Amino acid sequence: MEEEKFTLLRRFQYSSEAIIYQGKLESQGIDVFLRDNNIVDSNPLYSNAVGGVKMFVKTEDFDKANEILGDVSLYSVDDENQPLKCPECGAEQVDMEQSIDGVRSFFRVLFLGAFALLFSKYKHKCQNCKFEFE
């Protein structure tokens, strides 16, 4: 019996991201193996220390898996599934993140704890020029 070889496909900051992409690949018939996801789940601050959650696929499936993940947008899209464009520079590398609006958010978290984050707004941030917009 020949030994199977695996190749690192991607690294993720959090296991939740890796699990989403794992599901996409497995739905296409590609076996996926995650490493260090339990360490990161036990304490997300360890993610940088261990190099994130690592996604491996069989070496023979690497090209197909890379092609499948290449079709998945890593950035925000609008209602018509078109990439959002930064109004400042026109780049399509736009992420959505929680809006922390200074003193007001600080006091919300101080008095309500993490529960306050459920009521926070989201904004978009361009990864190219770092411009933030609603």
Score class of each variant (00 low, 15 high):
Phe33Asp: 03
Glu67Ser: 06
Asn66His: 10
Asn81Asp: 15
Gly52His: 12
Ser120Asp: 14
Phe6Pro: 01
Asp61Ala: 00
Asn37Thr: 03
Ala65His: 08
Ser105Arg: 06
Gln82Thr: 10
Val32Asn: 07
Glu67Lys: 14
Asp71Leu: 12
Leu117Ala: 11
Phe119Ile: 00
Leu45Thr: 09
Lys85Ser: 14
Ser47Asn: 06
Arg108Asn: 13
Glu17Pro: 04
Lys123Phe: 03
Lys125Tyr: 02
Val57Arg: 05
Ser105Leu: 00
Ile20Lys: 13
Lys5Val: 08
Pro44Asn: 04
Cys89Asn: 05
Ala114Val: 12
Glu17Thr: 05
Phe106Ala: 08
Glu4Arg: 13
Leu69Asn: 01
Glu134Ala: 11
Glu2Met: 09
Gln82Gly: 02
Asn66Ser: 14
Phe131Arg: 04
Asp95Val: 15
Phe107Ser: 01
Asp78Phe: 06
Asp101Met: 01
Val103Gly: 00
Gly29Pro: 13
Lys24Met: 09
Tyr75Trp: 14
Asn37His: 14
Ser73Cys: 11
Phe62Pro: 07
Ser27Val: 02
Gln127Tyr: 01
Gly51Leu: 06
Cys129Val: 02
Pro87Arg: 12
Asn48Asp: 09
Glu3Val: 13
Asn37Ala: 12
Leu8Thr: 02
Phe56Arg: 04
Gln13Asn: 09
Pro87Gln: 01
Phe56Glu: 00
Gly102Ser: 12
Gln98Asn: 01
Leu117Asn: 04
Phe12Val: 06
Phe56Thr: 03
Arg10Ser: 03
Ser42Asn: 08
Leu34His: 10
Ala49Pro: 00
Asn128Gly: 00
Met1Tyr: 07
Asp78Met: 06
Ala116Ser: 11
Glu26Tyr: 07
Glu4Asp: 12
Lys125Phe: 02
Glu26Thr: 14
Val40Trp: 02
Gly70Cys: 04
Glu60Cys: 05
Lys64Thr: 13
Ser120Leu: 11
Lys123Pro: 00
Val72Pro: 02
Val50Ile: 10
Phe115Val: 13
Asn37Arg: 08
Leu112Asn: 15
Leu84Arg: 06
Tyr14Ser: 03
Lys64Cys: 01
Arg10Ala: 12
Cys89Lys: 05
Leu117Thr: 15
Tyr21Asp: 09
Leu84Lys: 15
Glu2Phe: 03
Gly51Pro: 08
Gln28Glu: 15
Glu132Pro: 02
Phe62Leu: 07
Leu45Ser: 13
Gly23Thr: 03
Ala18Ser: 11
Ser73Pro: 10
Ile19Thr: 11
Phe62Gly: 05
Ser42Ile: 09
Met1Cys: 07
Lys125Arg: 15
Cys129His: 07
Asp79Glu: 15
Ser47Lys: 02
Gly102Cys: 08
Ile20Tyr: 15
Cys86His: 12
Asp31Ser: 06
Phe119Val: 01
Val94Phe: 11
Met1Ala: 11
Pro87Glu: 09
Val32His: 11
Lys64Phe: 09
Phe107His: 03
Gln93Ile: 05
Leu69Gly: 00
Pro87Tyr: 12
Asp79Val: 11
Tyr21Leu: 14
Arg35Tyr: 09
